[in-house]
Design a binder for these strands. Structure first.
Lengths: 204, 204
DNA sequence: GTCTATACTTCGATAGAC
DNA sequence: GTCTATCGAAGTATAGAC
Protein backbone atom coordinates (compact mmCIF):
# COMPACT_ATOMS: atom_id res chain seq x y z
CA UNK A 1 0.00 0.00 0.00
CA UNK A 2 2.66 2.49 1.05
CA UNK A 3 5.42 1.00 -1.02
CA UNK A 4 8.86 1.59 0.48
CA UNK A 5 8.92 3.93 3.41
CA UNK A 6 11.15 6.84 2.46
CA UNK A 7 14.07 6.79 4.85
CA UNK A 8 13.72 10.52 5.56
CA UNK A 9 10.56 9.74 7.48
CA UNK A 10 12.42 7.68 10.06
CA UNK A 11 15.91 9.07 9.99
CA UNK A 12 16.65 8.11 13.59
CA UNK A 13 15.72 4.47 13.26
CA UNK A 14 17.08 3.96 9.78
CA UNK A 15 20.35 5.69 10.54
CA UNK A 16 20.74 3.88 13.85
CA UNK A 17 20.66 0.52 12.09
CA UNK A 18 23.01 1.66 9.38
CA UNK A 19 25.46 3.05 11.92
CA UNK A 20 25.39 -0.23 13.83
CA UNK A 21 26.23 -2.17 10.70
CA UNK A 22 28.95 0.26 9.77
CA UNK A 23 30.54 0.13 13.20
CA UNK A 24 30.18 -3.63 13.26
CA UNK A 25 32.06 -3.90 9.99
CA UNK A 26 34.80 -1.61 11.28
CA UNK A 27 35.07 -3.66 14.47
CA UNK A 28 35.24 -6.91 12.53
CA UNK A 29 37.84 -5.56 10.13
CA UNK A 30 40.01 -4.27 12.96
CA UNK A 31 39.77 -7.53 14.90
CA UNK A 32 40.70 -9.55 11.83
CA UNK A 33 43.58 -7.23 11.08
CA UNK A 34 45.05 -7.62 14.56
CA UNK A 35 44.48 -11.34 14.93
CA UNK A 36 45.35 -12.63 11.50
CA UNK A 37 47.02 -9.82 9.61
CA UNK A 38 45.81 -7.60 6.83
CA UNK A 39 45.64 -10.39 4.29
CA UNK A 40 42.77 -11.85 6.27
CA UNK A 41 40.74 -8.67 5.88
CA UNK A 42 38.63 -9.54 2.85
CA UNK A 43 35.10 -8.37 2.22
CA UNK A 44 33.82 -11.92 2.64
CA UNK A 45 35.52 -12.58 5.95
CA UNK A 46 34.73 -9.15 7.35
CA UNK A 47 31.08 -9.60 6.44
CA UNK A 48 30.99 -13.05 8.02
CA UNK A 49 32.66 -11.82 11.22
CA UNK A 50 30.20 -8.95 11.47
CA UNK A 51 27.28 -11.25 10.80
CA UNK A 52 26.14 -9.44 7.68
CA UNK A 53 26.41 -9.84 3.97
CA UNK A 54 29.81 -9.20 2.38
CA UNK A 55 28.24 -6.90 -0.18
CA UNK A 56 27.55 -4.42 2.61
CA UNK A 57 31.23 -3.74 2.90
CA UNK A 58 31.14 -2.18 -0.54
CA UNK A 59 27.85 -0.49 0.07
CA UNK A 60 29.13 1.30 3.16
CA UNK A 61 32.74 1.88 2.26
CA UNK A 62 33.13 1.49 -1.48
CA UNK A 63 36.44 -0.26 -2.03
CA UNK A 64 38.59 -2.24 0.37
CA UNK A 65 41.05 0.64 0.41
CA UNK A 66 38.29 2.84 1.76
CA UNK A 67 37.47 0.30 4.43
CA UNK A 68 41.10 0.20 5.53
CA UNK A 69 41.22 3.98 5.61
CA UNK A 70 38.10 4.13 7.77
CA UNK A 71 39.53 1.58 10.21
CA UNK A 72 42.79 3.48 10.35
CA UNK A 73 41.24 6.89 10.90
CA UNK A 74 38.97 5.68 13.65
CA UNK A 75 41.89 4.25 15.59
CA UNK A 76 44.13 7.25 14.99
CA UNK A 77 41.42 9.55 16.30
CA UNK A 78 41.26 7.52 19.51
CA UNK A 79 45.03 7.50 19.83
CA UNK A 80 45.28 11.23 19.30
CA UNK A 81 42.72 11.88 22.03
CA UNK A 82 44.72 9.75 24.43
CA UNK A 83 47.93 11.53 23.52
CA UNK A 84 46.38 14.91 24.28
CA UNK A 85 45.49 13.71 27.77
CA UNK A 86 49.10 12.78 28.48
CA UNK A 87 50.03 16.35 29.24
CA UNK A 88 47.33 16.52 31.91
CA UNK A 89 48.87 13.60 33.74
CA UNK A 90 50.67 14.65 36.95
CA UNK A 91 53.64 12.57 35.71
CA UNK A 92 53.63 13.36 32.00
CA UNK A 93 56.93 11.61 31.18
CA UNK A 94 55.63 8.39 32.66
CA UNK A 95 52.34 8.83 30.86
CA UNK A 96 54.10 9.42 27.56
CA UNK A 97 56.26 6.35 28.04
CA UNK A 98 53.23 4.22 28.83
CA UNK A 99 51.38 5.64 25.87
CA UNK A 100 54.18 4.56 23.54
CA UNK A 101 54.34 1.15 25.19
CA UNK A 102 50.74 0.36 24.40
CA UNK A 103 50.93 -2.86 22.36
CA UNK A 104 47.70 -2.20 20.49
CA UNK A 105 48.97 0.77 18.58
CA UNK A 106 52.13 -0.98 17.48
CA UNK A 107 50.60 -4.14 16.06
CA UNK A 108 48.07 -1.97 14.33
CA UNK A 109 50.65 0.35 12.82
CA UNK A 110 52.82 -2.51 11.67
CA UNK A 111 50.04 -4.07 9.66
CA UNK A 112 49.24 -0.77 8.03
CA UNK A 113 52.86 -0.12 7.20
CA UNK A 114 53.08 -3.45 5.44
CA UNK A 115 49.75 -2.73 3.79
CA UNK A 116 50.95 0.67 2.64
CA UNK A 117 53.84 -1.00 0.93
CA UNK A 118 51.61 -1.81 -2.00
CA UNK A 119 48.69 0.53 -1.47
CA UNK A 120 49.75 4.12 -2.09
CA UNK A 121 46.56 5.58 -0.62
CA UNK A 122 47.24 3.87 2.69
CA UNK A 123 50.86 4.87 2.66
CA UNK A 124 50.00 8.54 2.23
CA UNK A 125 47.50 8.40 5.07
CA UNK A 126 50.02 6.81 7.42
CA UNK A 127 52.69 9.35 6.62
CA UNK A 128 50.33 12.25 7.23
CA UNK A 129 49.07 10.96 10.55
CA UNK A 130 52.56 9.98 11.72
CA UNK A 131 53.70 13.54 11.21
CA UNK A 132 50.71 14.91 13.13
CA UNK A 133 51.29 12.55 16.05
CA UNK A 134 54.97 13.36 16.21
CA UNK A 135 54.30 17.10 16.20
CA UNK A 136 51.85 16.64 19.03
CA UNK A 137 54.34 14.60 21.01
CA UNK A 138 57.21 17.02 20.44
CA UNK A 139 55.04 19.88 21.57
CA UNK A 140 54.18 17.97 24.73
CA UNK A 141 57.80 17.06 25.44
CA UNK A 142 58.93 20.60 24.89
CA UNK A 143 56.68 21.79 27.67
CA UNK A 144 57.51 18.87 29.94
CA UNK A 145 61.27 19.26 29.60
CA UNK A 146 61.03 22.99 30.10
CA UNK A 147 59.03 22.39 33.26
CA UNK A 148 61.82 20.14 34.57
CA UNK A 149 64.47 22.67 33.69
CA UNK A 150 66.13 20.49 31.04
CA UNK A 151 67.86 22.71 28.51
CA UNK A 152 66.77 22.35 24.90
CA UNK A 153 70.38 22.20 23.85
CA UNK A 154 71.21 19.40 26.24
CA UNK A 155 68.30 17.21 25.15
CA UNK A 156 66.18 18.56 22.31
CA UNK A 157 62.49 17.61 22.65
CA UNK A 158 62.59 16.20 19.14
CA UNK A 159 65.41 13.86 20.06
CA UNK A 160 63.70 12.89 23.29
CA UNK A 161 60.55 12.13 21.37
CA UNK A 162 62.35 9.97 18.83
CA UNK A 163 64.32 8.09 21.48
CA UNK A 164 61.33 7.50 23.71
CA UNK A 165 59.05 6.17 21.03
CA UNK A 166 61.81 4.19 19.30
CA UNK A 167 62.64 2.12 22.33
CA UNK A 168 59.06 1.71 23.53
CA UNK A 169 57.64 0.74 20.19
CA UNK A 170 60.49 -1.53 19.21
CA UNK A 171 60.23 -3.45 22.47
CA UNK A 172 56.55 -4.02 21.83
CA UNK A 173 57.22 -4.98 18.25
CA UNK A 174 59.76 -7.60 19.26
CA UNK A 175 57.54 -9.02 21.93
CA UNK A 176 54.32 -9.06 19.96
CA UNK A 177 55.59 -10.09 16.60
CA UNK A 178 58.67 -12.14 17.35
CA UNK A 179 57.89 -13.46 20.80
CA UNK A 180 61.28 -12.13 21.79
CA UNK A 181 61.53 -10.73 25.31
CA UNK A 182 65.21 -11.24 26.17
CA UNK A 183 66.54 -8.17 27.88
CA UNK A 184 63.23 -6.35 27.82
CA UNK A 185 62.72 -6.37 31.58
CA UNK A 186 66.20 -5.01 32.18
CA UNK A 187 65.76 -2.35 29.54
CA UNK A 188 62.45 -1.22 30.98
CA UNK A 189 64.05 -0.97 34.41
CA UNK A 190 66.84 1.07 32.87
CA UNK A 191 64.41 3.49 31.21
CA UNK A 192 62.09 3.79 34.18
CA UNK A 193 64.96 4.58 36.49
CA UNK A 194 65.60 7.51 34.20
CA UNK A 195 61.96 8.60 34.34
CA UNK A 196 61.96 8.34 38.12
CA UNK A 197 64.86 10.73 38.31
CA UNK A 198 62.52 13.51 37.17
CA UNK A 199 59.10 12.37 38.28
CA UNK A 200 59.69 9.87 41.06
CA UNK A 201 58.19 6.41 40.90
CA UNK A 202 54.93 5.95 39.07
CA UNK A 203 51.82 6.70 41.09
CA UNK A 204 48.25 5.65 40.25
CA UNK B 1 67.59 -43.32 -29.70
CA UNK B 2 68.93 -42.80 -26.19
CA UNK B 3 65.65 -41.62 -24.72
CA UNK B 4 66.10 -39.18 -21.86
CA UNK B 5 69.60 -38.72 -20.66
CA UNK B 6 69.63 -39.73 -17.01
CA UNK B 7 70.55 -36.64 -15.04
CA UNK B 8 73.17 -38.53 -13.05
CA UNK B 9 75.31 -38.66 -16.17
CA UNK B 10 75.69 -34.88 -16.32
CA UNK B 11 75.28 -33.77 -12.74
CA UNK B 12 77.45 -30.69 -13.15
CA UNK B 13 75.59 -29.23 -16.10
CA UNK B 14 72.14 -30.28 -15.01
CA UNK B 15 72.67 -29.01 -11.49
CA UNK B 16 74.23 -25.76 -12.65
CA UNK B 17 71.11 -24.87 -14.64
CA UNK B 18 68.83 -25.90 -11.81
CA UNK B 19 70.78 -23.83 -9.33
CA UNK B 20 70.56 -20.81 -11.59
CA UNK B 21 66.80 -21.12 -11.80
CA UNK B 22 66.51 -21.63 -8.07
CA UNK B 23 68.64 -18.61 -7.29
CA UNK B 24 66.81 -16.58 -9.89
CA UNK B 25 63.52 -17.40 -8.24
CA UNK B 26 64.89 -16.46 -4.84
CA UNK B 27 66.22 -13.18 -6.23
CA UNK B 28 62.91 -12.38 -7.88
CA UNK B 29 60.93 -13.22 -4.76
CA UNK B 30 63.18 -11.06 -2.58
CA UNK B 31 63.04 -8.13 -4.98
CA UNK B 32 59.26 -8.32 -5.16
CA UNK B 33 59.00 -8.56 -1.41
CA UNK B 34 61.06 -5.43 -0.87
CA UNK B 35 59.57 -3.35 -3.65
CA UNK B 36 55.90 -4.21 -3.40
CA UNK B 37 55.38 -6.08 -0.17
CA UNK B 38 54.77 -9.72 0.57
CA UNK B 39 51.33 -9.73 -1.02
CA UNK B 40 53.03 -9.23 -4.38
CA UNK B 41 55.03 -12.42 -3.97
CA UNK B 42 52.85 -14.91 -5.83
CA UNK B 43 54.03 -17.88 -7.81
CA UNK B 44 52.87 -16.22 -11.04
CA UNK B 45 54.64 -12.93 -10.44
CA UNK B 46 57.79 -14.53 -9.11
CA UNK B 47 57.96 -16.78 -12.14
CA UNK B 48 57.40 -13.87 -14.49
CA UNK B 49 60.05 -11.73 -12.78
CA UNK B 50 62.55 -14.58 -12.96
CA UNK B 51 61.71 -15.22 -16.59
CA UNK B 52 60.59 -18.79 -16.03
CA UNK B 53 57.36 -20.67 -15.68
CA UNK B 54 55.40 -20.18 -12.45
CA UNK B 55 55.12 -23.93 -11.99
CA UNK B 56 58.85 -24.03 -11.31
CA UNK B 57 58.28 -22.26 -8.03
CA UNK B 58 56.45 -25.30 -6.79
CA UNK B 59 58.86 -27.70 -8.39
CA UNK B 60 61.85 -26.15 -6.61
CA UNK B 61 60.32 -25.07 -3.33
CA UNK B 62 57.05 -26.92 -2.88
CA UNK B 63 54.64 -24.45 -1.30
CA UNK B 64 54.81 -20.67 -1.11
CA UNK B 65 55.58 -20.99 2.59
CA UNK B 66 58.68 -22.95 1.66
CA UNK B 67 59.70 -20.29 -0.84
CA UNK B 68 59.35 -17.59 1.81
CA UNK B 69 61.40 -19.67 4.23
CA UNK B 70 64.15 -20.14 1.67
CA UNK B 71 64.27 -16.40 0.95
CA UNK B 72 64.36 -15.64 4.65
CA UNK B 73 67.08 -18.13 5.49
CA UNK B 74 69.34 -16.96 2.68
CA UNK B 75 69.16 -13.37 3.86
CA UNK B 76 69.59 -14.27 7.54
CA UNK B 77 72.70 -16.25 6.69
CA UNK B 78 74.20 -13.20 4.97
CA UNK B 79 73.24 -10.94 7.85
CA UNK B 80 74.76 -13.30 10.41
CA UNK B 81 78.03 -13.37 8.53
CA UNK B 82 78.14 -9.59 8.50
CA UNK B 83 77.36 -9.43 12.20
CA UNK B 84 80.26 -11.74 12.98
CA UNK B 85 82.62 -9.39 11.17
CA UNK B 86 81.52 -6.46 13.33
CA UNK B 87 83.72 -7.58 16.19
CA UNK B 88 86.75 -7.49 13.93
CA UNK B 89 86.16 -3.84 13.14
CA UNK B 90 88.64 -1.52 14.86
CA UNK B 91 85.62 0.53 16.02
CA UNK B 92 83.15 -2.21 16.90
CA UNK B 93 80.53 0.07 18.48
CA UNK B 94 80.38 2.15 15.33
CA UNK B 95 80.26 -0.98 13.21
CA UNK B 96 77.43 -2.41 15.29
CA UNK B 97 75.48 0.82 15.04
CA UNK B 98 75.92 0.92 11.29
CA UNK B 99 74.93 -2.72 11.01
CA UNK B 100 71.66 -2.01 12.78
CA UNK B 101 71.08 1.06 10.64
CA UNK B 102 71.16 -0.91 7.42
CA UNK B 103 67.78 -0.22 5.80
CA UNK B 104 67.72 -3.48 3.89
CA UNK B 105 67.48 -5.66 6.95
CA UNK B 106 64.68 -3.64 8.44
CA UNK B 107 62.36 -3.51 5.46
CA UNK B 108 62.96 -7.18 5.00
CA UNK B 109 62.21 -8.07 8.60
CA UNK B 110 59.09 -5.93 8.63
CA UNK B 111 57.56 -7.76 5.72
CA UNK B 112 58.28 -11.10 7.31
CA UNK B 113 56.85 -10.01 10.62
CA UNK B 114 53.61 -9.04 8.93
CA UNK B 115 53.75 -12.26 6.95
CA UNK B 116 54.29 -14.30 10.10
CA UNK B 117 51.14 -12.80 11.52
CA UNK B 118 49.09 -15.30 9.59
CA UNK B 119 51.66 -17.92 8.67
CA UNK B 120 52.75 -19.83 11.78
CA UNK B 121 55.68 -21.52 10.04
CA UNK B 122 57.17 -18.14 9.16
CA UNK B 123 56.54 -16.77 12.61
CA UNK B 124 58.43 -19.62 14.24
CA UNK B 125 61.37 -19.18 11.91
CA UNK B 126 61.60 -15.46 12.65
CA UNK B 127 61.46 -15.98 16.39
CA UNK B 128 64.25 -18.56 16.26
CA UNK B 129 66.56 -16.46 14.12
CA UNK B 130 65.86 -13.29 16.10
CA UNK B 131 66.99 -15.04 19.25
CA UNK B 132 70.17 -16.27 17.57
CA UNK B 133 71.02 -12.81 16.25
CA UNK B 134 70.42 -11.18 19.61
CA UNK B 135 72.61 -13.71 21.40
CA UNK B 136 75.36 -13.02 18.89
CA UNK B 137 75.03 -9.28 19.37
CA UNK B 138 74.96 -9.48 23.16
CA UNK B 139 78.05 -11.63 23.12
CA UNK B 140 79.79 -9.05 20.93
CA UNK B 141 78.70 -6.14 23.12
CA UNK B 142 79.80 -7.91 26.25
CA UNK B 143 83.33 -8.10 24.94
CA UNK B 144 83.27 -4.56 23.56
CA UNK B 145 82.02 -2.98 26.76
CA UNK B 146 84.50 -4.96 28.82
CA UNK B 147 87.27 -3.74 26.55
CA UNK B 148 86.20 -0.14 27.21
CA UNK B 149 86.02 -0.72 30.93
CA UNK B 150 82.28 -0.21 31.18
CA UNK B 151 80.90 -2.11 34.16
CA UNK B 152 78.24 -4.70 33.45
CA UNK B 153 76.18 -3.31 36.29
CA UNK B 154 76.30 0.23 34.95
CA UNK B 155 75.20 -0.73 31.45
CA UNK B 156 74.38 -4.41 30.92
CA UNK B 157 75.33 -5.63 27.43
CA UNK B 158 71.81 -6.94 26.98
CA UNK B 159 70.37 -3.49 27.64
CA UNK B 160 72.92 -1.87 25.37
CA UNK B 161 72.00 -4.29 22.63
CA UNK B 162 68.29 -3.65 22.98
CA UNK B 163 68.73 0.13 23.08
CA UNK B 164 71.11 0.24 20.16
CA UNK B 165 69.01 -1.87 17.82
CA UNK B 166 65.74 -0.31 18.95
CA UNK B 167 66.73 3.19 18.01
CA UNK B 168 68.58 2.26 14.84
CA UNK B 169 65.90 0.00 13.47
CA UNK B 170 63.02 2.23 14.40
CA UNK B 171 64.60 5.20 12.69
CA UNK B 172 64.97 3.18 9.54
CA UNK B 173 61.44 1.87 9.84
CA UNK B 174 60.02 5.36 10.12
CA UNK B 175 62.04 6.66 7.25
CA UNK B 176 61.50 3.75 4.89
CA UNK B 177 57.93 2.95 5.61
CA UNK B 178 56.42 6.24 6.69
CA UNK B 179 58.67 8.70 4.91
CA UNK B 180 59.07 10.37 8.28
CA UNK B 181 62.48 11.86 8.98
CA UNK B 182 61.70 14.65 11.44
CA UNK B 183 64.31 14.66 14.17
CA UNK B 184 66.28 11.78 12.73
CA UNK B 185 69.35 13.85 11.93
CA UNK B 186 69.45 15.30 15.41
CA UNK B 187 68.95 11.90 16.98
CA UNK B 188 71.73 10.35 14.94
CA UNK B 189 74.06 13.17 15.99
CA UNK B 190 73.06 12.53 19.58
CA UNK B 191 73.82 8.82 19.33
CA UNK B 192 77.04 9.21 17.40
CA UNK B 193 78.35 11.73 19.90
CA UNK B 194 77.93 8.96 22.43
CA UNK B 195 79.79 6.46 20.25
CA UNK B 196 82.60 8.94 19.69
CA UNK B 197 83.12 9.21 23.42
CA UNK B 198 84.45 5.66 23.41
CA UNK B 199 85.80 5.17 19.93
CA UNK B 200 86.45 8.62 18.55
CA UNK B 201 84.94 9.72 15.29
CA UNK B 202 84.32 7.11 12.63
CA UNK B 203 87.28 6.26 10.43
CA UNK B 204 87.18 4.42 7.12
C1' DG C 1 64.08 -29.46 -15.50
C1' DT C 2 60.87 -26.97 -17.81
C1' DC C 3 56.67 -26.11 -19.98
C1' DT C 4 51.38 -26.31 -21.05
C1' DA C 5 47.06 -26.94 -19.38
C1' DT C 6 43.91 -27.15 -15.99
C1' DA C 7 41.37 -28.05 -11.49
C1' DC C 8 40.03 -25.68 -7.65
C1' DT C 9 39.71 -21.73 -4.52
C1' DT C 10 39.01 -17.12 -3.11
C1' DC C 11 38.99 -12.52 -4.02
C1' DG C 12 36.73 -7.54 -5.34
C1' DA C 13 32.98 -5.66 -7.17
C1' DT C 14 28.32 -5.02 -9.08
C1' DA C 15 23.29 -5.70 -10.73
C1' DG C 16 18.95 -6.38 -9.23
C1' DA C 17 15.22 -8.45 -6.08
C1' DC C 18 13.23 -7.41 -1.76
C1' DG D 1 19.69 -1.09 3.79
C1' DT D 2 20.30 -5.74 3.01
C1' DC D 3 20.39 -9.84 0.49
C1' DT D 4 21.15 -13.28 -3.64
C1' DA D 5 23.56 -14.24 -7.54
C1' DT D 6 27.18 -13.75 -10.42
C1' DC D 7 31.18 -12.03 -13.33
C1' DG D 8 35.99 -11.72 -14.11
C1' DA D 9 40.54 -11.73 -12.21
C1' DA D 10 44.11 -13.79 -9.66
C1' DG D 11 45.83 -17.10 -6.54
C1' DT D 12 47.93 -22.22 -5.24
C1' DA D 13 48.89 -26.37 -6.79
C1' DT D 14 49.20 -30.53 -9.71
C1' DA D 15 49.27 -33.76 -13.88
C1' DG D 16 51.44 -34.81 -17.85
C1' DA D 17 53.91 -33.77 -22.38
C1' DC D 18 58.45 -32.73 -23.82
Amino acid sequence: MFGRVPKVYHPGVARARATDTREGLLDAAEALLLSEGYAAVTSRRVGAAAGVNPALVHYHFGSMDDLFLAVYRRRVAEGTDRLRQVLDDPQPLWALWEYNCDPRGTAFTMEFVALGNHRPVIRAEIAASATRVRDLQVDALDRILTRYGIARRECPPLVASVLLSSVARYLVLEEQALGLTDGHDQTVVFIERFLSRYEGSRRG
